[in-house]
């Protein structure tokens, strides 16, 4: 195993959306269409709104999908809006999203992007 110097990426945010089961694919598609890379989906079960709604609860699925997308903080509002609209989070009972600042992240940096990074330092 070869040790490689790690490059930390800063100013990253995590956008987490909790949506009705089945919506995650729509959201990830919208995220990709907006030019972002994509994200991951977990299954989850929520409580709260169903208990509050009484019999109306039948219209709200207890099964939820949690979509996590990481992006640069520069684009957080743009991407949050894309997810908000794709998930129809403006309608009651459809879920919510949060934006969390990430301290640092690290991953493979593609060569083309690494070159851009290097140029940025010299300028």
């Amino acid at each position: 195993m070869k040790n490689q110097p790690i490059t930390f990426l800063t100013d990253a945010v995590l956008i987490t959306a909790v949506v009705t089961v089945g919506r995650a694919d729509t959201i990830l598609k919208a995220v990709r269409n907006a030019g972002a890379m994509g994200g991951i989906v977990h299954l989850a079960r929520g409580t709260g709104i169903r208990e509050r709604l009484g019999l109306l609860a039948i219209a709200v699925e207890a099964e939820k999908e949690v979509v996590s997308v990481i992006t640069a903080s520069d684009y957080q509002d743009f991407l949050a809006e894309v997810i908000y609209n794709a998930g129809e989070l403006g309608a009651p009972g459809n879920g919510y999203l949060t934006v969390t600042a990430l301290e640092r992240m690290a991953t493979y940096i593609p060569e083309e992007a690494a070159a851009r990074l290097a140029r940025g330092r010299h300028e």
Binding site: R52, L53, L56, I58, A59, V60, A91, P92
Partner: peptide, 19 residues
């Protein structure tokens, strides 16, 4: 105290309609 104490009729429609 909960954010809402009752659901308005308009909201009921908005919840039930897509369902």
């Amino acid at each position: 105290k909960p954010i809402v104490s009752k659901v308005t009729s308009q909201e009921v429609v908005r919840i039930l309609q897509p369902y």
